[in-house]
Design a protein around this nucleic acid. Structure first.
Length: 430
RNA sequence: GGGGGGUUACCGAAGCGGUCAAACGGGUCAGACUGUAAAUCUGAUGGCUAUGCCUUCGCAGGUUCGAAUCCUGCACCCCCCA
């Protein structure tokens, strides 16, 4: 199956500049394709996943992917789809972010495989060189304002100009499109890049780049967009009550990441499997059937979580996430050492207490719950225990009189407390 | 400026001299059920060294053997008349 028909089948194609010819064009010879990534944080998040996955597929099909980090455009802010003007970032912060993103991209793209090696470039490297006058002369001249005003991203903002300070659009933001358009021209000149891919909200920017290349260099470039990945309730993927789901393990632990996918709604999981994983059509269909017959097993979610977590955090990250899942959902805790426990419970609050608290008859379970922050008062702790909601190392505590001693330690120094179904805390005795 | 009503625990809201740590509903926390879903059901819900003790009913005083409940003053809120 050709790359493009596979992408189509997976629902990854929203629009192309060349519906009839592109498939053929891609099969003729290896092409160079680029997609942009937002550098407003030092980590990518679930929202960037689609772009990475698409570039990865292009590379697997023998094409050369370029990931462009918008160091320059990030300083300005893309108006597309944003209701308000974005905060500007300092140069230093951007440089740091760009470095972080590159690290994560290595998991998706091969940067060392000869002619189709991926490239990571920062558009600040070329955009930063421009003088204002040069830019106006060489680039700005090619942008008819009336065409720009007709773009949806601009129109929607101008319509709000009477709504006080947040309405309207600054000249800086208005210029964003020019910068991004020039990126395409530059990449075409330097890497012979002929195709830009992006989310459907990027269509306007992509076509602007194609127009500019035609005017400046008389070349015909191409564009392709993927649909925005949204949930069945219309909200964005990748957000939880506690915030964004990041790809960096320091920001979102592998366990939390894995759990995010495990908890995807039935209505969304099919889309996610098709768009984000590399499972083939047959496997995806089999999961679909399984989902209809035995929805309760949630095999699709499990598979989805497994695939994506492996891609982002590697086999090791996946196995920690799975082990943690097993434990967080009731498996008794045994045969684990300090470092394993710490890794698994990385997200869980912990408190250090003196080792001596465990000697001399031990530490009352009620006090332990309060110390660990699982109960606000001893009364509340007592209630929890009496109602059967307190667990030590995932074993239910029987009786209010329980005293914790060294025998209750799960590993050398750590004891795992739990209140209710999911609230955990660690006590470290050192 | 005058008249009336209000202020109760996390929130809403009963209580109007002892049996009030204070009904009821929501929330929250546990438990059961379940698909790590939704719904439902059950229990708990001021603190503690705990069959008792301590601190709470806007704030400060007072009456009384005894006050969330009565009286006085103060603060804030709402309504009506100027």
């Amino acid at each position: 199956m050709s790359l493009l028909s596979d992408l189509r089948l997976r629902g990854l194609i929203h629009q192309t500049t060349d519906d009839e010819g592109m498939d053929q064009w891609l099969q003729e010879r290896p092409r160079t394709v680029y997609a942009g990534f937002d550098p407003t944080a030092d980590s990518l998040h679930v929202g960037s996943l689609l772009g990475l996955v698409v570039l990865r597929r292009f590379q697997q099909a023998g094409h050369k992917p370029i990931a462009v980090v918008g160091g320059a455009t990030g300083m300005i802010g893309d108006p597309s789809g944003k209701s308000d003007e974005r905060n500007l970032l300092s140069k230093e912060a951007l440089a740091q972010n760009v470095a972080g993103l590159g690290e994560q991209m290595r998991k998706f793209l091969d940067f060392d495989c000869g002619s189709c090696s991926a490239e990571l470039v920062n558009n600040f490297d070329w955009t930063g060189q421009w003088s204002y006058l040069e830019f106006l002369r060489d680039v700005g001249k090619n942008f008819p304002v009336n065409v720009m005003l007709a773009k949806d991203s601009v129109k929607s903002r101008l319509g709000r100009s009477d709504e006080g300070q947040s309405g309207g659009m600054s000249y800086t933001e208005f210029s964003y499109m020019l910068l991004q358009a020039y990126d395409f021209v530059h990449l075409n000149e330097k890497f012979a890049c002929e195709l830009q891919a992006g989310g459907s909200d990027q269509w306007g920017n992509i076509t602007a780049g194609i127009d500019l290349a035609r005017r400046m260099n008389s070349v015909q470039l191409r564009g392709l967009t993927w649909p925005l990945l949204t949930k069945s309730d219309g909200t964005k993927m990748g957000k939880t009550e506690s915030g964004t789901v990041w790809l960096a393990a320091e920001r979102t632990s592998p366990y939390q990441f894995y759990q995010y996918w495990i908890n995807v709604e039935d209505a969304d999981v099919g889309n996610c499997l098709r768009m984000l994983t590399e499972l083939n059509q047959g496997e995806i269909e089999a999961l679909e059937v399984a989902r209809e017959n035995e929805a309760g097993k949630r095999e699709s979610q499990r598979r989805l979580a497994e695939e994506i977590t492996r891609l982002v955090h590697g086999d090791e990250g996946l196995s920690v996430a799975q082990k943690a899942t097993e434990i967080f959902f009731g498996a008794e805790i045994s045969d684990l050492d300090d470092s394993q426990l710490r890794q698994i419970f990385a997200d869980v609050p912990s408190k250090q207490l003196a080792k001596t608290r465990l000697t001399d008859g031990g530490l009352a379970i009620v006090d332990a719950l309060v110390e660990a922050g699982l109960s606000k008062s001893k009364g509340e702790a007592r209630r929890t225990v009496e109602q059967g909601g307190a667990y030590v190392n995932n074993r239910r505590v029987e009786g209010i009189a329980t005293q914790l001693t060294a025998e209750h330690l799960a590993s050398e120094t750590v004891l795992v407390l739990r209140s209710g179904k999911k609230k955990y805390a660690l006590l470290r005795f050192e």
